[in-house]
């Protein structure tokens, strides 16, 4: 025999009815949201031009008000469109990566579609969460008269319902934000290039003066992926020769041969590169003792307009070379 009163039964039934309705309401909201976003999604670009159009529609012209790069005729917009066309043509980046590149260079304000992450995601999350909370509130107010429970109990139910609605609404909103928000896979300034050739070369240059061994290793890593990289060939050879000067004759000879071969290869690959010619002149004079050849290489080096650091090395050496030739 049950000890529960008829009023308790009625209360329990009313609570189950309300929860059932709430579940249906949430299901309906989620289904409508998915339907809207599913129907709104296009089937993807068919040609490269479609891709270019789709990407340029996602980016604002940085010099005009309220125009996308797709519609704007401003010079900056045209330059961005040309860059997007080039990157699409290369076929190496996804649409999101190309958008991220442009946003990285011009700032997040050029993104026409708000991001699905961070503070900007609130643009997506808040309306959805608010809609779910409003629906839940509506259901609760409709059911208030039907539920024959005490006032504190009603208040507790209201709070629980609202907490559930907020959690569910936020969850759905986050899903919507992830689905529809701007996705930017590249967040580093130069596109995640930690191991790229440019980054390795820059790291090698930074290490060079103080940590020759690391610099040689870094140039070696560049040559593993790009054996014809002229800068790596030149500077690796130069640093090997500089560090070999402290060792015995046989090691110096070995390093000299390697250095001459590498610098020769660099000059063959890019005859206009001044640094290789300059270092060849220095090495041939300092380590090979051949002033006549050194003079020829150093003259060619100066003709090629070397950067200031290398020019400084060469100009101080030229007088020594000329003096040696005069003797």
């Amino acid at each position: 025999m049950s000890l529960e009163s008829p009023a308790h039964h009625a209360n329990h039934a009313a609570r189950r009815t309300m929860l059932r309705r709430l579940a249906w309401a949430v299901t309906l909201v989620v289904a409508i949201a998915l339907l809207v976003f599913g129907a709104g999604r296009d089937t993807g670009p068919l040609t490269q031009q479609d891709r270019i159009d789709a990407i340029t529609k996602r980016i604002a012209c940085p010099t005009c008000d309220g125009e996308s790069v797709y519609v704007s005729r401003a010079a900056a917009a045209q330059a961005i469109r040309a860059e997007i066309a080039r990157q699409v043509g290369d076929g190496l980046k996804t649409d999101d990566e190309i958008v991220a590149f442009v946003a990285d260079r011009f700032g997040g304000q050029v993104l026409l579609v708000p991001s699905g992450r961070g503070l900007e995601a609130l643009v997506w999350v808040l309306p959805v969460a608010l809609a779910v909370v409003l629906v839940a509130g509506l259901l609760v107010s409709v059911n208030r008269g039907a539920v024959g429970s005490s006032r504190p109990s009603r208040r507790r139910k209201l709070v629980i319902t609202m907490v559930i609605a907020v959690v569910v609404g936020t969850g759905v909103g986050v899903l919507v934000a992830r689905q529809s928000g701007q996705r930017l896979p590249l967040q580093t300034a130069t596109g995640g290039i930690e191991d790229s050739t440019a980054s390795l070369l820059s790291q090698a240059r930074l290490a060079g003066p103080t940590d020759v061994k690391s610099a040689i290793d870094l140039y070696g890593r560049v040559l593993e992926t790009d054996p014809d990289n002229v800068e790596a060939l030149t500077y690796r050879a130069w640093l090997i020769m500089l560090s070999a000067r402290q060792f015995d004759e046989s090691l110096r000879k070995q390093a000299y041969a390697t250095t001459i071969a590498s610098l020769g290869r660099a000059i063959e690959l890019d005859p206009a590169y001044p640094d290789a010619m300059c270092f060849l002149g220095i090495v041939v004079f300092r380590d090979g003792g051949d002033a006549a050849s050194a003079k020829e290489f150093l003259d060619r080096c100066i003709e090629r307009n070397p950067p200031a650091e290398v020019r400084g090395l060469v100009e101080s050496l030229r007088t020594e070379v000329e003096a040696a030739l005069g003797d």
Partner: peptide
């Protein structure tokens, strides 16, 4: 010619002046 350098540096309006150090940074 096609604004590739301007886009690479994120230049929308001129003039802009950039300084790059001897290590290329």
């Amino acid at each position: 010619a096609d604004g590739a350098i301007a886009v690479a540096f994120g230049v929308a309006k001129v003039p802009e002046t950039w300084i790059i150090d001897p290590n290329g940074f």
